[in-house]
Design a protein around this nucleic acid. Structure first.
Length: 376
RNA sequence: CGGCAGGUGGCACAGCGGCGACUGCAGGCGGCUGUAACCCGCUUACACAGAAACACGUAGGUUCGAGUCCUACCCUGCCGA
C-alpha cells in the first residue's frame, strides 16, 4: 500500500485549473490547497486547534530547524511530529533545501550535501539527501520533500545547469534512502531556474522515479512576477497529470491564482502568518495595515465579510491597540484571521473550478482585492 | 535660606570651542514568498548652500566661531539648616 494517492475530480472547462483530492495516512486534502507553515513544530502564535478551525487541511514542518532543535531523535521519541505538536491532520516536511538558499551565505555545497553553519550558534552541520530523509523519517511527516538545491534567481545558466543536475542526483539518493514508502510519501522537486530547457530536463529526470507527487521549486525567490508566470506557463504541464503538483513558497493571492489556473494543486507560504505578526491583514477588499492611524477609532471588524473568530469578536481599533502595545494576542488574532482568509479563498477557488467558472471567480476576486480585474 | 547636580526633538540621553546637533524609544509610512523575521527599512518641517536655518531654559558677555567657556536670572532634583 502506498502512503499517498491523488484523485483528479474535475478539470475547469476553460483553464488548466483542477479540483482534486489527496489521501494520506492522516486524512484527505481537498485541492487546490494552501498549506500554512509551521517551521518549528508550531504555526507561530497559534494553537493547533486554532489552525484547524481556520479550515487548514495540512501544515508544513521543517527538517533543518527541527534537526537543530529539539533534534529529530527527540521528536521521534515523542512519537513523531503529529503527536509532539498535537496536530492530527497531514503534515508535509520541507527537506532543508530552502535553507540552502535562505542561509546561503553560511553554507557550503558539495556533491555530498550541504555544510550548514547553524544560524543559532554557528556550529557546523552536514545535511545530505540521506540525512534529510533520515530526519524526515524521524519526524514522521505524511509527505516528505526531496533534498534539493534552491538556487538564487540571479544565478548564471552555467550554475543552474550544475545545480539542476545535482538536484537530480540527490533525488536518486533520497529515493534510495526512503524505506517506509507505505507510511510516508516522497515528493521530487523540479529545478532549472528560469531556463525552459533545463526545467524540461529536470522534469524528465525526476518523473523517471515515479513518485507520488512533484513540486516546482526555485521560483518565488525574488524574481519578477513575469518571470514567475513565465515558468508557470509550461512547468506544471511537464509533470504527470495523475499526481499532485506543488509550487513551493507562494502565498500571495495573485501568485496562487496564476498557479491554480495552470494546473497546480498545492502551495505553502509564511506570508499570511508572518505579515500577521507584522500588523498586516488580508481582507476581501485588499490588504490593510492595522498599524495605520486611520484605524484608531474604527470599531468595525477587520473584514466584514469574514467569518473567522477574530472578525466575529474584535474591532480594528482593538486589534490596532493590541499591535501597537506589542501584545501577543495581536499575533494570535491576526494570524488566525489571515489563515482563515487563505483557507476561505481556496474554498471559493475549489467551488469555482467545480462549476467551470475559475476565470470568473479570479476576475471577481482581483477586482475586490487588488482593485482591478487583472490585479495591477 | 545655603550647598551640590542638572536643564538638548513627545520621552530618555550623547556632545564639552567649528552643530545646519548622535543614538534609543515613542509617533508616521512601507516591506515581508518551501520562516535566522513579535523582524527589517524609510521618515519626523519648508527650503537648499543663502547676511538662510535652528530640539541646546532666559538674558547678557568672551570669541573669527558658543549647545559647549563666563556672569546673572528662572526652573528641576538631592543634601543641609
Amino acid at each position: 500500500m502506498k502512503a499517498l494517492s491523488y484523485e483528479l475530480i474535475h478539470k475547469d472547462a476553460k483553464t488548466g485549473a483542477r479540483r482534486g483530492r489527496i489521501t494520506t495516512p492522516h486524512g484527505t486534502i481537498e485541492t487546490p490547497v494552501f498549506m500554512p507553515v509551521g517551521t518549528q513544530a508550531t504555526v507561530k502564535a497559534m494553537k493547533p486547534e486554532d489552525v484547524e478551525r481556520t479550515g487548514a487541511q495540512i501544515i508544513l514542518g521543517n527538517t533543518y530547524h527541527l534537526y537543530l532543535r529539539p533534534g529529530s531523535d527527540i521528536v521521534r521519541e515523542a512519537g513523531g511530529l503529529h503527536k509532539f505538536m498535537n496536530w492530527n491532520k497531514p503534515i508535509l516536511t520541507d527537506s532543508g533545501g530552502f535553507q540552502v538558499f535562505s542561509l546561503g551565505a553560511m553554507n557550503k555545497i558539495s556533491e555530498e550535501g550541504v555544510e550548514f553553519r547553524s544560524h543559532i550558534d554557528g556550529s557546523k552541520h552536514m545535511l545530505s539527501p540521506e540525512k534529510s530523509i533520515a530526519v524526515q523519517t524521524d519526524l514522521g511527516s505524511d509527505i516528505m520533500m526531496a533534498f534539493d538545491e534552491c538556487a538564487p534567481p540571479d544565478s548564471s545558466r552555467e550554475y543552474i545547469e550544475k545545480s539542476q543536475a545535482l538536484t537530480t542526483r540527490w533525488l536518486e539518493r533520497c529515493v534510495k534512502a526512503h524505506k517506509n514508502t507505505e507510511k510516508q510519501a516522497l515528493f521530487g522537486i523540479m529545478q532549472g531556474g528560469f531556463f525552459r530547457d533545463l526545467r524540461e530536463k529536470s522534469a524528465r529526470e525526476i518523473t523517471e522515479f515515479d513518485l507520488p507527487g512533484y513540486a516546482i521549486g526555485g521560483i518565488s525567490v525574488g524574481e519578477t512576477k513575469e518571470e514567475y508566470i513565465g515558468v508557470l506557463e509550461y512547468a506544471p504541464d511537464l509533470l504527470p497529470e495523475d499526481k499532485p503538483r506543488y509550487v513551493m513558497g507562494i502565498g500571495t493571492p495573485d501568485y496562487i491564482f496564476e498557479a491554480v489556473q495552470r494546473g497546480v494543486d498545492m502551495f505553502d507560504c509564511v506570508e499570511p502568518t508572518r505579515i500577521a505578526r507584522h500588523g498586516m491583514a488580508m481582507t476581501s477588499r485588499g490588504r490593510i495595515s492595522i498599524k495605520n492611524a486611520r484605524f484608531e477609532r474604527d470599531f468595525t471588524p477587520l473584514d466584514p465579510e469574514c467569518d473567522c473568530y477574530t472578525c466575529r469578536n474584535f474591532s480594528r481599533a482593538y486589534l490596532r491597540h493590541l499591535f501597537k502595545e506589542g501584545e501577543n494576542l495581536s499575533n494570535m488574532l491576526l494570524s488566525e484571521h489571515n489563515l482563515r482568509f487563505m483557507a476561505k479563498t481556496l474554498e471559493e477557488i475549489r467551488k469555482a473550478i467545480e462549476e467551470d467558472r475559475f476565470l470568473e471567480y479570479k476576475k471577481e476576486f482581483y477586482t475586490k482585492y487588488y482593485g482591478s480585474p487583472d490585479g495591477k
